[in-house]
Design a protein around this nucleic acid. Sequence first.
DNA 1: CGAACCGTACGACGCAAATCGAACATTGGA
DNA 2: TCCAATGTTCGATTTGCGTCGTACGGTTCG
Lengths: 118, 118
Amino acid sequence: MTEVTEPAIETVTIDVVLSALADPVRLTFVRALDAAGDWTCGSDVLRETGVTIGKSTLSHHIKVLRDAGLIRTRVDGIRRLVTLRYDEVEQRFPGLLAMLREHGPARARGISSPYTSG
Amino acid sequence: MTEVTEPAIETVTIDVVLSALADPVRLTFVRALDAAGDWTCGSDVLRETGVTIGKSTLSHHIKVLRDAGLIRTRVDGIRRLVTLRYDEVEQRFPGLLAMLREHGPARARGISSPYTSG
DNA sequence: CGAACCGTACGACGCAAATCGAACATTGGA
DNA sequence: TCCAATGTTCGATTTGCGTCGTACGGTTCG
């Protein structure tokens, strides 16, 4: 039983989405996934963004984002890949992802090229 | 010194806005102000929405919303009136208020007419 | 001036959430 | 089969935040 499920997009409420995005780690994570554009390893996102948290904490945050309907998890061999649910989120909350994209990190520290180091 | 100031809209970050809206009381409050459409007494909003919190707690929430750049406070005699910063918020976060408006309360309990009892 | 009212400021409390560490499950490779 | 790597789950800890009660400030009215 290695399947990972996420809620149907119609059942996603804005309350839960706002709570999910209200955490700095998760907000950074979502923005990184948005910049990546496709399936990405969560641990890699951590390194590229410079966020230092334990792996159990990362697992927790990913679960929160998944339960909030924002991301999807796929099993790929030994690791788990995650991706933003672009179309569905855009369908239910038009402009939300664009808003996060335009309003980048509060303080753009010297990030040369976004998430292409690996 | 009874003036109440709010941050310039250009200095408002989405992080702070998301955190402000992530609380159920504040989200209800913002939606109520949106429905009201103009200057409203915070205590009245509480009664009309059925939210029961102490006045110090209300004061705290209003301050959070004001610091987040979402609302503005005006002194009116013995009381304080608040209002949504429609145009400015719309200018900086296009579609945000509309999103809150369309995605109404998670559970629409028997609310007959919105905020016109007083 | 004094009383009543509205809101703020401050300290304290409690709970929910974030975090960590350890144990366990799963997969891939030697 | 054994071991290394990845990620989840669980329990415990800590931190942050919502909440309240009280005290204080400002305003209106008598």
